[in-house]
Design a protein around this nucleic acid. Sequence first.
DNA 1: TGCACTCGGTGCAACGATGCACTTAGTGTA
DNA 2: TACACTAAGTGCATCGTTGCACCGAGTGCA
Lengths: 215, 215
Amino acid sequence: MELDALPPDRRAALKARHRRAILDAAKALITEGPAARFSVDQLAERADVSRRTIFNHFASIDDVTTTVCSEVLGVVIDHFRQVVTTEPVGPGTRAAAFATLTEALRVTDVPGLLAFLWRALGGLDKGDPRPRQIFQATFSRITTELARELSERNADLDPLEAELLVSSLMHGTEVIAEHWLAATGAATDEPARVLWNELLDRLIDSVRTGYRSLD
Amino acid sequence: MELDALPPDRRAALKARHRRAILDAAKALITEGPAARFSVDQLAERADVSRRTIFNHFASIDDVTTTVCSEVLGVVIDHFRQVVTTEPVGPGTRAAAFATLTEALRVTDVPGLLAFLWRALGGLDKGDPRPRQIFQATFSRITTELARELSERNADLDPLEAELLVSSLMHGTEVIAEHWLAATGAATDEPARVLWNELLDRLIDSVRTGYRSLD
DNA sequence: TGCACTCGGTGCAACGATGCACTTAGTGTA
DNA sequence: TACACTAAGTGCATCGTTGCACCGAGTGCA
């Protein structure tokens, strides 16, 4: 009937379930924003787990935060990549790859990711260099993964060419992301969405113009 | 907001939850009948608990079954008692108490309880004396609890009188219960229900006649 | 300046769950 | 009779969780 619904090792399964509960609770708390104070005790209560257990799974509260951020980022990246792999990429032309990437950028919920990271890290404008580092690491990760994806999917596209194309788009996205965050404070309302689309349009135009001048 | 959803002692809460899972799984397995074989491994799988854990909570498999039976019995008794306490009992007359008790007997799902016990214990006709002992203990428990209930609710009714009244009804119920089990094999179909009602009518008539002759 | 208070983090012992090897008893089969 | 097989039950070491006392840094306040 049902084949090993639980792997033979209940111990590991339960441990994993606890880790999951902690991460889910952390994600929920961050999503709820500053209203729900993000403390160890809050986290423990939400995850239905002892306070001590959190420190059995994670080295620190920051460890929890960055892990959650990484997971959320992973989801967005997966969605982004799915769009890229779904879109038909023309045979080897930079223009086709460019179109695919920009389309993916438009469709993906980048502001949502930015808002989550913003809330998780408490903004960019503090003395703490950690948030900006995580943002940069985030974009770096997206860049490399997407470049590999692109060149794998399209043998005619030079790997270096792909990386340069993705890189220019991603670094540009990073620039407008910081601009958007500074301007909106990671708001999720309509004006913020509009501003994001405007910034994205300007970025795409800029990159397209630059590339066209090279043709 | 939410006040101690979990008592401060998570350890005890989790332990109780495991015990509950085992008992619920046992109840489900018994209810499903002989199709679902009632073994320790089955029980452990259903309760999502290690096989060893079952023996941490219960001394034996029989311990589990009798505990479950006791719980199911408790539910029925509670229902029974609720009917008794709800029905208006006249001031001190045996007739009023008798009416209340018989009404409760008619309303309560005695055949359902009997069927569950029957399945849990594997019938009465084996060399094992345990099933019959449990049945007798069951009725004994109902008898004493109900007698106390009756005399508490009605100060004009002599306690001994109450116990004698309840006792005669309950022992009669025990008699027709064994008869019903032997005849139907604890079936849950319509003929079995009809037979039960007929037996119950004959019992009530018999007791009523006997009591009337004492007036 | 001193004091109370909060919160992140640690050390440690106790506890319950688990896996596993093992024994024992019952049952069917060659 | 001997053997295989199944299922109940036990002993024991191991593991993850938990509660608790405790520490140290930061913060608000008199």
